[in-house]
Structures are given as structure tokens and as C-alpha cells.
Design a protein around this nucleic acid. Structure first.
Length: 803
RNA sequence: GCAGGCGUGGCGGAAUUGGCAGACGCGCUAGACUUAGGAUCUAGUGGGCAGACCCCGUGAGAGUUCGACUCUCUCCGCCUGCACCA
């Protein structure tokens, strides 16, 4: 048998699959469907990374298995192609980003095709294609119509050297990623999307989906729901009030002062009554200067100044309490003001100790001279008037009812989640399809005029003012108001990269539709995505954003269900051989093209699946790749060992059924490494047997096919097994036949292994006992001892307890 | 700091309704074939030991059990998430 020529074989099958459109998804909506999805890549100039094929192969395995199981499978691929690297490269080279994008996409597509993925390439989408982003803009307009898009003053990251607004991901340790200059904050009017309106549903509906637990946990943390009450405090001798959000209304009697954030508007409003304005102004200035980076540093020493001239009234006991300003209270969460209960909140406790403020115990059970007592399960209310003697939970109910009755408070739920800053002052993104008219305000571009395309320009340099480069293109900016026909200007901000990826999986269902983002029939049939695999780094941004858009589209009747993805899993990273993150600067980058050229696509696929636990990071190993190549060479040589036979031979029957079971189950649960190990074990057994019959080989090839599709098709063809492998059915196993008739079990004496015996699985204890006692090593261990007890677990162990 | 998870050979990793620890692969050792071998094949490979005896061994220590990688407690280390969110 000739050596396996993987180059020729892989090329041959890739051409056949393409020519015969083997993996083209059928539009026959009567068949059972399966929608397998992987995150579409950003087609960078670097080309494919060895990290990409890991998740792609994993779901390719699932997709190929599903086809063999008779499903109509949608397994698509596309390009998330708007983005900064392309734009920056365009600025440097003066080449249009669309040209660069096309070049990069062609490279990526070719690389992916060389790996033999079973994508339906006829459904490819590209977020930068006007026919695609027309619908991105359309969704934005729907959000705008429903009041979920609004404009607001928001701080952005600004690099004074590059004179450019930076996305958060371009800011590294508070510095500009490109020039390392300290990033400043600039306030700009930004488009925002009201994702907070969906916070509750984004949490609750996690119950409807099958996501790995760490994804759910991360989303819940990110949304950060907390229940409590808004409580109104009067400011003495004024008409003003301060509303605070608290999760511990039960401790209201222990509120001995209030703290407001430096940005709190009451400071401006009551300026005339405040007697230490300069001191406060100085503190505000100090807080303002702290960059986002410094502010996010963990637990610093608390700082603050009192607001002199103002006193608040504690609504439960009428006590006058001081008001302080401190930057540990954030304007962006709750109301920007808190009631401080130093006895039962550690932050307030630290603050009170530092500034000598009174600490009152209202929940007995701890020692508040040492630290705040924050327990809510054991404590009993004290010093709290009508709450005394209650446990914390009952006190909470009672005080909220009391506050509501008096009009001093209401139950309230708060979220850490903020609205989504949707503007970018950049060129290479979807234009926001709105025009601003002096008379009519913000007016949507009419649907029939979509898409709003990017103007062709000579260069993409940002402006000095932090405006989008589009602002300079006057002939594009200046337009007429669709409503009144008067002069109007286009919005020059573009959308963030997260826009196009928030709905791309919908487009795959019906990618060439020019009447709708996809037809209703296609969406009804294909949704939800049955299995979506992607990186953990997308859990709180992309995944949450796309769930939000999907819920909105569900609300306006565009999609059939409230959740886009039925199941979400995540893969680990592939590290360099030195166990560090792969990067050019570390010099440990492995190029998949090189691996394919030297070992072949099947080997790369096999290796990436065998490399280790799919969900964990693993270092690359060139030696490991060779081992996988060796395995495939051994598979190839099976052709020299084939003998006729339409049924599994008795000596391999149990092994065959065991392997079918193991591989079938492991492919479903991300345990590709053990599935492949099982196939390797079977191959070793076959080699020891010296031959493999046709029935055994057919099953073996089908099981291996999803991971190594080229070599298995080739062998199938050469042995004339009939048709193509991809037209066969997934093998089934018979549970009863997975059990070997005789097994070797261990014999223990006092729990220590002394020997092994071979027994029939259904042997009674007596038969096993006889064999166990006949064992030489066992006899030695029993010598001179008295048997106290014997434990026999059929098929597992025979344990003899002696004295 | 809080929450969750994980610690198994030289390496990646198997095995948990408690039942022969180290599957599978890499690496390594010896041998075969060979002009050669970084190809291929065969055998071996947790440690100690000359050894088919025996002893030790799943981060450390204790406990439950006939029996513990698996269950319980304490400690150590690593990873992930959250981190002034009231």
C-alpha cells in the first residue's frame, strides 16, 4: 500500500465537496433541523491563528455527526469585518479599508477551506457588505423608534497624542494601545442603547437556556441585580430631598450620616447654603482628575469632605445627620447618594472610623467596635424602635411597608449593568442612519433609503476635535430632512463592532433576502441556534448584546422566540509551546498553514481535538502533532488488513459497541480528547488482532470521519464501500453488547490489591471466591489470618477482610 | 477581600452513584529492520528494589469506610469570576 499522500487526498475531497455542494444546507423545512454556530472571525491581516480551528473543528464534528444522523444542518461562516485594525492599517497605507477587508477575507476563506470544514459557503455573510448592514441599520432604527436609542453626554477615552477617541479595548493600563500616551477622559454626546430596560429579562431568561454554568454566573454578575428600597431623606430647612438606594432598609435606624458622590447635582443646587464651597470644589476637582483607571483600582483609603451648612433628617427617627461627599459613592449607580450605616456596612464603617462619625448598632450579634456586622441570617434588631426584636428579613418587610405607607420610600431593584455606548467616532463602521434637523430634531433615514453607505474618501485620518472622520466629508454630511425637507446633517458617528455581530446568526438563515433581514419561514424553522460555541471573552459583551437585540426583535415580532441560543459552550485558548500566550513578540506563534502543509488538515484537526480538555487552555506541542499524524498513518494501513465480514467478529464485538457508545457520547459533551483516545484504543486492539473486517472498518471510519473527514472518505472510496462516507448513517450500539462476557477483576485483602482473577460477569460469588482463594498472591496474604468478611462486587472487585 | 473551581507520572491528560490509579498520546529506554534514521515495527516505562516478592504513591494532614483520586474537616498552592455597585 502506498504511503498516505495527504496533500493530494485532502485537495481532492475539498474539491469534490465543493463541486457537489455536499454541505449546502437544504431549504427543505420538513426535515428535522440542527443549527450549529461558531463565532465568526474578524478577518485580520495576520491570517488564521491556530486558536481558530479549535472551536471550528469541535462544531464541525457536531455538524458532521448530525448530518449522518439525518438532520438538515445549518453550519455557516462569515466575517465580522468592521473594526479598528483595518482602519488603522488603512490610515497608514492609504488603501481603502474595504479593499483591505476583501483581501483579508479571501485569505481567511482560503485558509478555512484548506481545513475541510463543512460550512455552507453559499450562506457566507459579511458585516461590511451594504446588503448586510442595511439590516443592522434597520434594527437600529427600530430600536430608535421604540425609544431604546438615545443620545447622552458620556465620557470617552481620548488620546491627546493620536487625537483620537479610543474604544475601551484600545486602552491598556490607562494608556493608548498604539502610542502609550496617558489616556484622558473627554465628554462627548453619544448614542446609547437602553439595554438596562432588558436587565431583568436577561437574567431571568437564563433559566430557559442551556449555557455552561460559568457563562451564566458571569452574565448574572455583570448585570448585577440587587433588591432593596429607595428611601427619601429631607434636607433640613430646604425643600430638597436626597433619595438613596439601599439593600438594607432594615438598618435605617443605624444611618448616622449620608454620603453623596462628588458629581451629585444637589451640591450645585444648594450651593448658596453650603458654607465650605471651596473645600468641596477642591475635592470635586481631585475626583475628576482621577482617571477611570485609578478609580477602578481596588480598595483605596477612603477620602471625603463634609458638606457644611446642610443636614439631612433620618425619616424614621427624625435625627439630624451630617452629609459628606466622597468618591466611594458612584454617581453612576443607584441615586449617587447613600445612607451610611457604619455599624453594618464595612465601607461606611471604615469611613466613620476615619472621620470620627458615630457608629450605632441596630442588629445585635457582632462586635461593631471591631468591624461592621453584616450578617443577615442570625442578627436581631435593636435600637430600632418598632423593629426591635425582629430578625433582619422580617424587619426589611416591615420597614418597607412602613416607608411606603408614609410616602418615604418604595421597593426598588437596581442593576450594575449600564446602558450600551453605541457611538464610535470612526470611519470603518456602520453609519448611524439618522439625520439631525434644526426643526425636527433627530429623524430616521427612511427605510427605503437604507443602507446609508460610507462615503468614498481619500483618507481616514481622525479630526483634531475627536469627531468622526466622516464629519469632514461635508457633501456626505449635508442633506435634507426626510420630514420637513429642510437642511439637515447626517449623524457622523458610526456603530461599534458589536453591532453587526449582534444579529448575524439571523442572517445566515436567509442570507440573500432583500426584503427582510431574513424570511419569517426561515427564522421560524432554524431558530433558536441549537449549539453556539465561542470564547469566554465574549460572555459579557457580544453574548449579552445579542441576547438583548434578540429579545427586542422578539418583542416587535421579528423572531419566533425570546432567546437566540439554546446552548452555549466555550473553548479554552491554545498557548505557545512555552505555555505563554501566543504572540509575535513572544516568538511562539504557530501558523496553521505550516501545520497543514507539513502534516495535513486531518492531522491538525485531530490534534486540536486531542490536545486536551476542550474547555481549558493548553500549550501547543509539535511532538503531539506528530503523534496524531502517526495515528492517521496507522489508520491508512488498515487497508492492508481488511478481510471480508458483514458483522463484527466475536472477539471485537464488545469493543466495537463500547467504542460506538463512548465516541457518540463524548462528541456530544465536548470530550473530543477521550473520544479520540477510544478510537486509538480500538485501533491498537485491531493491530493486535492483526486484521479488521469490513463491518468493523466501516464503523471505525464513520466514527473518525467528523474529526478526520478527508482520510476517512478516501479509504471508504478505495475499498469501494459504496457511495460516499458522508451519505452513511451514524452507527448505533447495543447496550447489552457493550459488556464483555469475562472480565478480569482485582482481589483485595484488607483493601490492598493482591492479585487479579478472570471471572464471568454473571458468576455467582461462590465461583469468584474459589478463583480468588486459588490465587497464589492472595494465599500468601491470607496465610495465618482469619477471614472475617468477604465483599464481592460483580465485575469490579473481590475484597477479603482478615484479622 | 468575597464566591466558585482545580491540584493525579518527565509532559498533555484518563478514571468520581467509592471498587485493579495513571486509559490514550507525547517523551524516554531497549531491541528489530536498515548504508543511515529525526521513518517504521516490537517490548518496556509512577517511585523505591536485582526482583514475577514487598513497600510507597493522586498538593499536605486528619477522618468516615471492607475499600477513598472520588465523601467530610483543616491547611497550602494555582486558576476563574466579582471587587468601594450601597
Amino acid at each position: 500500500m502506498a504511503r498516505y499522500n495527504f496533500r493530494a487526498v485532502e485537495k481532492k475531497w475539498q474539491e469534490i465537496w465543493e463541486e457537489k455542494q455536499i454541505f449546502k444546507t437544504s431549504n427543505d423545512f420538513s426535515k428535522p433541523k440542527y443549527y450549529a454556530l461558531v463565532e465568526f472571525p474578524y478577518p485580520s491581516g495576520e491570517g488564521l491563528h491556530v486558536g481558530h480551528p479549535r472551536p471550528y473543528t469541535a462544531l464541525d464534528v457536531v455538524a458532521r455527526k448530525r448530518r449522518l444522523e439525518g438532520y438538515n444542518v445549518l453550519f455557516p461562516m462569515g466575517w465580522d469585518a468592521f473594526g479598528l485594525p483595518t482602519e488603522n492599517y488603512a490610515i497608514q497605507t492609504k488603501i481603502h479599508p474595504a479593499v483591505i477587508t476583501e483581501r483579508n477575507i479571501n485569505r481567511f476563506r482560503e485558509q478555512l477551506k484548506s481545513l475541510g470544514f463543512s460550512f455552507d459557503w453559499s450562506r457566507e455573510v459579511n458585516t461590511t457588505d451594504p446588503a448586510y448592514f442595511k439590516w443592522t441599520q434597520w434594527i437600529f432604527l427600530k430600536l430608535f423608534e421604540h425609544g431604546l436609542a438615545y443620545k447622552k453626554e458620556m465620557p470617552i477615552n481620548w488620546c491627546p497624542r493620536c487625537k483620537i477617541g479610543l474604544a475601551n479595548e484600545e486602552v491598556v493600563d490607562g494608556k493608548c494601545e498604539r502610542c502609550s500616551h496617558q489616556v484622558e477622559t473627554r465628554v462627548k454626546n453619544q448614542w446609547m442603547l437602553k439595554i438596562t430596560a432588558y436587565a431583568e429579562r436577561l437574567i431571568n431568561d437564563l433559566e430557559l437556556v442551556d449555557y455552561i454554568e460559568r457563562v451564566k454566573v458571569q452574565q448574572r454578575n455583570w448585570i448585577g441585580r440587587s433588591e432593596g428600597a429607595d428611601v427619601i431623606f429631607k434636607i433640613k430647612d430646604t425643600e430638597e430631598t436626597l433619595t438613596v438606594f439601599t439593600t438594607r432598609p432594615d438598618t435605617l435606624f443605624g444611618a448616622t450620616y449620608m454620603v453623596i458622590s462628588p458629581e451629585h447635582p444637589v451640591l450645585e443646587k444648594l450651593k448658596d447654603r453650603i458654607t465650605n464651597v471651596p473645600e468641596i470644589a477642591a475635592y470635586q476637582e481631585q475626583a475628576r482628575k482621577k482617571s477611570e483607571f485609578e478609580r477602578s483600582q481596588l480598595v483605596r483609603e477612603k477620602t471625603g469632605v463634609p458638606v457644611e451648612g446642610l443636614k439631612a433628617i433620618n425619616p424614621v427617627n427624625g435625627m439630624e445627620i451630617p452629609i459628606w461627599v466622597s468618591d466611594y459613592v458612584l454617581m453612576t449607580y443607584g441615586t449617587g447618594a447613600i445612607m451610611a450605616v457604619p455599624g453594618h456596612d464595612q465601607r461606611d464603617w471604615e469611613f466613620a472610623v476615619k472621620f470620627g462619625l458615630p457608629i450605632v448598632e441596630v442588629v445585635a450579634g457582632g462586635d461593631i467596635t471591631k468591624e461592621a456586622y453584616t450578617d443577615i441570617d442570625e442578627g436581631v434588631m435593636v435600637n430600632s424602635g418598632f423593629l426591635d426584636g425582629l430578625d433582619v428579613k422580617s424587619a426589611q418587610k416591615k420597614i418597607i411597608a412602613w416607608l411606603q405607607e408614609k410616602g418615604l420610600g418604595v421597593p426598588k431593584v437596581n442593576y450594575k449593568l449600564r446602558d450600551w455606548v453605541f457611538s464610535r467616532q470612526r470611519y470603518w463602521g456602520e453609519p448611524i442612519p439618522l439625520v439631525h434637523c434644526e426643526k425636527c430634531g433627530w429623524v430616521p433615514v427612511p427605510e427605503e433609503e437604507l443602507p446609508v453607505r460610507l462615503p468614498q474618501v481619500a483618507n481616514y485620518e481622525p479630526t483634531d476635535t475627536g469627531e468622526s472622520p466622516l464629519a469632514k466629508i461635508r457633501h456626505w454630511v449635508e442633506t435634507t430632512c426626510p420630514k420637513c425637507g429642510g437642511y439637515a446633517e447626517r449623524e457622523t458617528d458610526t456603530m461599534p463592532q458589536w453591532a453587526g455581530s449582534s444579529w448575524y446568526f439571523l442572517r445566515y438563515c436567509d442570507p440573500h433576502n432583500d426584503q427582510a433581514l431574513a424570511s419569517k419561514e426561515a427564522l421560524d424553522y432554524w431558530l433558536p441556534v441549537d449549539w453556539y460555541n465561542g470564547g469566554m471573552e465574549h460572555t459579557t459583551l457580544h453574548l449579552l448584546y445579542s441576547r438583548f437585540w434578540h429579545k427586542f426583535l422578539y418583542d416587535i415580532g421579528v423572531v419566533p422566540g425570546p432567546e437566540p441560543y439554546a446552548k452555549r459552550t466555550s473553548h479554552g485558548m491554545i498557548l505557545g509551546e512555552n505555555n505563554e500566550k501566543m504572540s509575535k513578540s513572544r516568538g511562539n506563534v504557530i501558523n496553521p498553514d505550516d501545520v497543514v502543509a507539513e502534516y495535513g488538515a486531518d492531522t491538525l484537526r485531530l490534534y486540536e481535538m486531542f490536545i486536551g480538555d476542550f474547555e481549558k487552555s493548553v500549550p501547543w506541542s509539535t511532538e503531539g502533532v506528530r503523534g496524531c499524524k502517526r495515528f492517521l498513518d496507522r489508520v491508512w494501513k488498515l487497508m492492508d488488513m481488511v478481510i471480508p465480514g458483514e458483522a463484527y467478529r466475536p472477539e471485537l464485538e464488545a469493543k466495537m459497541h463500547q467504542t460506538i457508545k463512548k465516541v457518540s457520547q463524548d462528541y456530544e459533551s465536548l470530550k473530543f480528547n477521550t473520544a479520540i483516545a477510544a478510537l486509538m484504543t480500538l485501533l491498537n486492539d485491531v493491530y493486535h488482532t492483526g486484521s479488521i473486517n469490513e463491518a468493523e472498518l466501516k464503523t471505525f471510519l464513520i466514527l473518525l470521519n467528523p474529526v478526520a473527514p478527508h482520510i476517512t472518505e478516501e479509504i471508504w472510496e478505495r475499498l469501494k464501500f459504496g457511495g460516499m462516507l458522508n451519505e452513511q448513517s451514524w452507527p448505533t450500539w447495543d447496550e447489552a453488547k457493550t459488556v464483555e462476557k469475562t472480565v478480569e477483576i482485582g482481589v483485595q485483602v484488607n483493601g490492598k490489591l493482591r492479585g487479579t482473577i478472570e471471572v464471568n460477569v454473571d458468576d455467582p460469588q461462590e465461583a469468584a471466591r474459589e478463583k480468588a482463594l486459588a490465587n497464589e498472591a492472595v494465599q500468601r496474604a491470607l496465610d495465618g489470618k482469619t477471614i472475617v468478611k468477604e465483599i464481592y462486587v460483580p465485575g469490579r472487585i473481590y475484597n477479603i477482610v482478615v484479622k
